[in-house]
Design a binder for these strands. Sequence first.
DNA 1: GTCGGAAGTG
DNA 2: CACTTCCGAC
Lengths: 262, 262
Amino acid sequence: MQVATWNVNSIRTRLTHITNWLQSNPVDVLCLQETKVIDEDFPKSNFEELGYHVYIYGQKAYNGVAIFSRTPLNDISMGFTPILGGTIGEKFDVQKRVITGVVNKTRIINLYVPNGSEIGSEKYEFKLLWLEVLKDYLKTLRDQTSQEFCVCGDFNIALEDKDIYDPKGKENHIMSTPAERQALQNVLSIGLKDAFRKFITEEGHFSWWDYRSAGFIRNRGWRIDHLYLTPKLYEKAISCKIDISPRKLEKPSDHTPVIVEF
Amino acid sequence: MQVATWNVNSIRTRLTHITNWLQSNPVDVLCLQETKVIDEDFPKSNFEELGYHVYIYGQKAYNGVAIFSRTPLNDISMGFTPILGGTIGEKFDVQKRVITGVVNKTRIINLYVPNGSEIGSEKYEFKLLWLEVLKDYLKTLRDQTSQEFCVCGDFNIALEDKDIYDPKGKENHIMSTPAERQALQNVLSIGLKDAFRKFITEEGHFSWWDYRSAGFIRNRGWRIDHLYLTPKLYEKAISCKIDISPRKLEKPSDHTPVIVEF
DNA sequence: GTCGGAAGTG
DNA sequence: CACTTCCGAC
């Protein structure tokens, strides 16, 4: 089974990129972030025609996540609220960043972690808080079920220096501050391991390049799109790859897909 | 000598269209309207590299005119104020619609006549007033000098029924009302003749097609971009042509160039 | 309806 | 640099 994650930066603008990619890469599950469209306007049929069931959780202009799956998903839920209950959603589910569903006893959890804007800003604090809530969410979900998890998405965090093209120059940069890394490590402490690092340990592999200052052609990249697996699934993983080819197309997303097979 | 006029509807969006066109059509003078950019951001060097001297009179987002010339222009001025003096500019030069300069003893006057929006509206009245001021401007300029004039630009007026694809359906339409036609005839009465009509008298030749409802592919056009010449220059004119090819490109301006040779 | 630019976010 | 919405223009 293959699961891919891809921040597409607008499903509508990237429509042909995504359908073309799926035809060459008929993954079982595709998790998308930054769809940037309300559910009513989501171009579902384009993907249904390719044989996918489409699950969406979108909003106007910002954020928005979706899961496409060749077989129907079970136990679908959107946002933190269905799992955590209470009023947590009033603060955290206004932004549509979380969608989950189960296929083959494996729970797919698709995330779009807040970007954080600038260190110390309100958005930065929100990102750190959001990651705390995420840990609760994952822990609760894991305790409730005996499912294996594939937690994937755009984390907007490079966990290690080798995940950044110029770590020295990025020591106090958004997406690589100690606080962000610690917050993500704390999430992973519930029992999640990075599928990519099972196979590739060296530096210089990236999933995102800034549109600005020719980030891609100078390979000034970051590895911030991740697939994290619970132990049994991690053991079963047989490959994890970044496909940089969509980033080379005309009008690309700034992110490129990452695919795990298990 | 060849002089062309072209409402480009944003110099920045049309940059490659214009440079490509100039390479195939190395006219001596190109008059542009609706450049839609402040002078600071005008992409001058792209045209200087092609051997043109660039004279610009722009504003933010709307209007804006420019003249490119293979040889330097003399006696350049922008707006009505330098010629008419007084406070006329407070009302009329806020919108950047007039630029002029002299080459080979011929004065090029490049105009972007107000569109007029809807009949009877404030903008419609402004258009009619603007044309009265234009007449004063041209008369004053002509009395001051012994130059021949080439008065060109987007006039937003189709002078005759045969300049419209469907004159019957446009009897009370902006750009062809009797008042607009009369106002333009009044301007021309100072001694200006339509270069295009020296060569082509039949109907069905257009320089503008509405973006809406597939105006171009259905050839629902208007001839509203004109080159008017004073008598001696008119006698010397050897051709005047509309080049519809740029209108066929991807993301075209809604107008296409008109070229006179004398 | 179909453009273009502006402002805000990433 | 590239998205979005909003708005003005035509």
